[in-house]
Design a protein around this nucleic acid. Structure first.
Lengths: 194, 194
DNA sequence: GGGAAAATGTTGCCACAGGCAACAATGTAT
DNA sequence: ATACATTGTTGCCTGTGGCAACATTTTCCC
């Protein structure tokens, strides 16, 4: 336990920040408070994050990585069939998205400056998952052939939108499962091979 | 031009705030700066907005009112037929949503505290529009009968999600029109009377 | 009309945050 | 061992939000 050098302040700060984010939202997150909780002086975080926004960006990036993991896990658990996989990824996305509203906001809210590139890259992973899934559906002949991106983005957007409405308190959380059902169902009917 | 009493500081502050919001985002919005721009002392805004969040809430509420207006206008211009009306409301929503990303964030982001009720009420107007439209589609026999809310929320969510993806820089703005097309098309096919 | 009371603005203060610079301690490499 | 890079620390500055005390209008009621 080093006295002067913390050892892995960066990781500690991110962990503490994640907790703060979940509990109080990004607005209330204070670098100085994180430093206090990490038992370190108020200027120490600056060695690891150029400014407040840099830390928030790092949180968002980590969020995308975790989202990717969770979606992959859900897909893996859903087997090989397209239908169940689609349902699983949708449910997993919304679980993630509604479980930590502040993080989701951070991930999708347009507060990325130059660091936006990193975030866009991090977001590509989950996007790709959705894309691959659509491709599978097309290959199996369940979905009509076409641009996977186009339809994949719309599906992703639907899930994201549902999360926004629920997190914003505009739709009661109890309706979540039903909405996912409806969304997936509508998507299937709307893209089914004719 | 009263020297001491401004006359309608509240309205002025909201106007200045709207400009600031659009230009710098909600994070950078400072009550004191608004006061300066309004030519008033730093504590004056407090007489009209209990705190910073109250002003932001007021901005969001006004945003919903304006959104409602614009959607109504679009519907009115689209005639009586269901198809064109659906397309028009979708396009109008996304125009509004992508034209002022920071405002949209404020409107849907879950930063509403107790004042959330007011916002939810304000949001009900545009929601109702969507709902009525769905009902029309069902009445005309274009859409399959069913719970208008359920399908309306999903449609709303899709549009909102597309806006989020574009505003967040995760999808190129050039794709907007195509996505709206795809979304509306998918919705029609997914909800068409079978 | 006139005077109390409410509304609206002002000045001054405080605590706290972010950011910067100068300095200190610790690790690392030659 | 000694120079150099890393990582923390202390101290300072500016700006913000929020509060309280005071000043000026406006309104309302007799």
């Amino acid at each position: 336990m080093p006295a002067y050098h913390h050892g892995n302040l960066r990781a500690t700060l991110l962990a503490v920040a994640e907790r703060s984010l979940r509990r109080q939202g990004a607005d209330q997150l204070s670098l100085r408070e994180l430093a206090r909780e990490a038992g370190v002086s108020h200027a120490a975080p600056r060695r690891h994050f150029a400014d407040r926004q840099a830390l928030l960006d790092a949180l968002a990036e980590a969020g995308f990585a975790r989202l990717d993991q969770e979606l992959r896990a859900a897909l893996a658990a859903a087997g090989e069939e397209f239908g169940p996989r689609l349902h699983a990824i949708a449910a997993a996305y919304l679980r993630f998205a509604t479980e930590d509203a502040a993080l989701l906001e951070l991930m999708f809210t347009g507060k990325h400056r130059e660091g936006g590139d990193r975030l866009v890259a991090a977001a590509a992973a989950p996007f790709g998952l959705m894309d691959d899934l659509i491709a599978q559906g097309q290959a199996e002949g369940v979905l009509e052939p076409g641009d996977t991106q186009r339809v994949g983005v719309v599906l992703f957007a639907t899930l994201q939108g549902i999360a926004t409405l629920i997190n914003g308190g505009l739709v009661a959380p109890e309706l979540l499962d039903g909405l996912v059902e409806t969304a997936v169902d509508q998507f299937m009917r709307g893209s089914r091979r004719r």
